[in-house]
Each structure stands twice: as C-alpha cells, then as structure tokens.
C-alpha cells in the first residue's frame, strides 16, 4: 500500500519537476569528394627523402592532403577526379621523389618481379633519368599517388606499367592530366607523352584501381626533347 502511495506521489511530482524534451532531427548532404587541402598540423607524418633504390614510403591521407596543397591544387584535382575511390598509399608528398640515372639504380629483383618485367622494357641510356616504383600492393577501389620532381630538360616521358589486372595511371602537372599515347605490350601498358613547359617543379603520378587488390610496378623513363 505504501508503495502504491509513493508511486502516485512520484506520478504527481514528475511532470512538475522535469520539462518534456522536444527534438528535431535535421538531415543534410555533403560531398566528401571535394575536401579542401588541410592545414598541416601533423608532426609525425612519414616522408621519403627522394628515391632510394626505388623504395616507396607509404603515408596516409592526412599527409597526402597537407603535402599536396603545396603543389598547386593537386589535392583538389585528386579529390574531384577519384570519386568513389579511397586514398591509398602515397610517396614523395613531403619531399618529392627524384628521378635518377640508371647508374644509380640498384634493386633486388627477387622481391620485385613486376618491376623486373618493366625494367626489361625500358630503353637503357646514360642520358635518361628514371623513376622506379617497386612492386606495390594497391587495395581495391583506391588510388595511390607518387609525387616527384620533374627532371630538367627532359620533357619526354614513357610510363611502363606492369600489373596483375587492370590499372589506370595518369601523370598530372599543374592540375592537368598530361595526354598520352597508350600501347599494350604483352599485358604491359606503355604510355608516352610530353610534359609542356611549366613553372611547376613537381608532378604527380596517380594510379587508380577500380578492381580488386593487386600488385603493380611502374617505371617512368624521362628523356630530352
């Protein structure tokens, strides 16, 4: 009986003690394919110090946008043109990779079978420079980015791309994709083009994978005009 009495009292008091909350659920839509390059507050981003025997240092999204903002809107290009793809690895973002002469190249092909296949197809010359991207894994529906220095007086380039499946690679300078001629040679894709005169010192190679996870290697061969 006492419990019933307490229950009635609580029933009477509650509406006076607490207001009835009201709610509003408001929805919105935002595109996250147009993320502005971030203000780089990171202190622990990994970065590479130029090309070191073809090694690629993997860094992640935070550093990608921060670093890309330094090379003139490339971040905007990437985010606008890679809708539906997650950002994967990137290298050279803090310090762009440097193409090297062939005499400086040394790598172990036992762990880089795709690179070995691409290496067999380059035109080996002392007057050319090369950018080596050793065997790398790219996740499904993602894109990798390689930022590199444009070698002086070597505007002609040839991209030799070896992959297990379908990959799309493109070279971007000053927020613009450089047009190329594409040839397929025994499952190896070779693209040739010319970098127009530019004040930009750096360019980006973007590798897009709309399919399943796969391994690839790329060599870019630069030559004088």
């Amino acid at each position: 009986m006492k419990k019933l009495l307490i229950f009635i009292l609580v029933f009477l008091i509650c509406p006076l003690a607490f207001g009835t909350p009201q709610t509003s659920l408001n929805s919105f839509e935002i595109p996250i394919d147009a993320v502005p390059p971030g203000t780089d507050n990171s202190t622990n981003s990994k970065h590479s110090n130029g090309l070191s025997d073809g090694a690629v240092t993997a860094i992640t999204l935070g550093s990608v946008f921060g670093g890309l903002s330094a090379i003139g809107g490339l971040g905007w290009y990437l985010t606008k043109h890679n809708s539906g793809l997650a950002c994967g690895c990137a290298c050279g973002v803090k310090t762009p990779l440097k193409p090297i002469f062939l005499k400086d190249f040394c790598t172990d092909f036992s762990k880089n079978k795709a690179l070995e296949k691409a290496f067999a197809l380059i035109d080996k010359s002392e007057n050319k420079k090369y950018l080596f991207i050793t065997d790398m894994k790219i996740k499904e529906k993602s894109y990798n980015t390689v930022i590199f220095e444009i070698p002086q007086n070597m505007p002609n380039f040839k991209i030799i791309q070896v992959a297990e499946g379908q990959l799309n690679s493109k070279l971007i300078v000053s927020n613009t994709e450089i047009p190329v001629k594409t040839n397929l040679n025994n499952k190896v894709i070779i693209k040739q083009g010319k970098i127009p005169e530019t004040k930009e010192q750096n360019a980006a190679l973007v590798i897009e994978n709309y399919k399943t996870e796969q391994i690839y290697a790329i060599i870019i061969e630069f030559s004088p005009s």
Partner: peptide
C-alpha cells in the same frame, strides 16, 4: 585513410 570519397548523407 579508408574513407570512400563521394556524397554523404548525415543527420543531427
């Protein structure tokens, strides 16, 4: 890093 780019719908 694993965020997929594209259009998102949210609510508050």
């Amino acid at each position: 890093p694993d965020t997929i780019l594209g259009s998102y719908r949210g609510s508050i």
